[in-house]
Amino acid sequence: MLEGLTRLKVPKSSDVLADRLRREILSDAYPPGASLPTERELVSATGLSRGSVREALRMLEAQGLVSTRAGRYGGTTVSQPTDDHLANHISHYAKGRSVPLQSLVDVRLALEPMVAFLAAERRTEADLISLRAISARLDKSADSDPAVFLEENANWHDALAAASHNPLLGTLATSVGVLMFEASQLANFATAEVRQRVCRAHHRILEAIELGDAELARRRVERDVQAYALALEAAVTASNWARQAD
């Protein structure tokens, strides 16, 4: 009589409750800013233990769907995931899977030219002011401070992503940019030659965006990402050789 039966996988009660609340939040039954039922109310309504209810709420908080405040006047309210939530998930995935540098470059090549294309079409005067200001700081740091240069370079790409006015595409590009920034923290990478090359490339990209020439901006960013990746790959290779020699 037991033929054909297999081991059953029964979901945890906290997973079931988290899934139920998640579906209600995403269907706007609880809009952003709305309060969820209290822990006591959830325990009473579901028959679950307080521990299971708290675990479900912790899962939703980790996903950026709710925020919980402790204390007498605390509680759980519905929130919207931030850019940092997506960036953290992508970072954990890439680092946990040991995603190679070339894969990051491939993703950046897929994303950033389209970011520049949209930025040229959609940029506002505020976007241009931001890009020009960062470009000026980038030029200044290129002559003397590689660490500041790398930081301002990351800021420039973030500003470019914001100028696309596509929140999902921009956040994806920024998230990959964070990983590229971390990979660039090599003593032998940001040489004077690399810094000057990046500055020239950014001036050409900004020029295309100011002109509103989307196709030109796309092509120039594509060349910039490819050149940056080649320089970074060479630095990584040299660093690996140096470690092996030691």
Rank of each mutant, 00 (worst) to 15 (best):
V107G: 13
G33C: 02
A142N: 09
P100K: 12
Y228I: 02
G75R: 10
E215R: 13
R132L: 03
A183Q: 12
A217H: 07
A94I: 09
T76W: 03
A154P: 01
A116T: 11
H202M: 05
L5K: 13
S14F: 07
L101H: 11
G74L: 00
R197A: 13
L60Q: 12
Q244E: 06
A238D: 12
L36P: 04
L48P: 07
A214I: 07
E125Q: 15
G96N: 07
D145Y: 05
T46W: 09
V43T: 14
T68C: 00
S239K: 06
S184V: 03
A162Y: 06
V10M: 05
V178W: 12
R204I: 02
D127E: 04
T174L: 01
P32G: 07
L65A: 11
E3H: 11
A116M: 04
V225I: 15
L109C: 09
N240T: 11
R122S: 05
Q185M: 01
R204P: 00
V236A: 12
S103W: 08
A190V: 10
L211C: 10
E39D: 15
N188F: 02
L206R: 13
C199A: 13
P37T: 04
A119N: 05
G64L: 02
L150I: 03
A227G: 08
S144W: 03
A45F: 01
A161W: 02
E233T: 14
Q102W: 06
D19L: 00
S14H: 14
E193G: 09
R132P: 01
D106A: 14
H157I: 00
E121P: 00
A238T: 09
W156D: 03
R97I: 03
M180Q: 07
Q63S: 14
E207M: 02
A245L: 15
Q196A: 13
A18H: 09
R108N: 12
A94F: 06
R50P: 03
A56K: 04
S130N: 10
D28F: 10
S13Y: 03
V107M: 12
A208N: 05
R40G: 03
L138G: 12
Q226C: 01
M114K: 14
A163N: 03
A235M: 09
A110R: 14
R69L: 05
Y73K: 14
R108M: 03
S144G: 08
S79P: 01
T124R: 14
L111D: 10
T6Y: 10
H203K: 15
V148A: 15
Y228N: 11
R195V: 03
P167D: 12
L104F: 11
L26H: 06
Q80S: 15
R243K: 15
A162N: 09
A18C: 04
D106P: 01
A56Y: 00
V221D: 08
N166F: 03
A161S: 15
E24V: 02
T77Y: 01
F117E: 12
A70D: 08
N240V: 06
T174A: 15
Y93M: 13
T77P: 00
P11V: 03
S52R: 08
E55W: 00
G170V: 02
S91P: 00
M114I: 07
A208S: 14
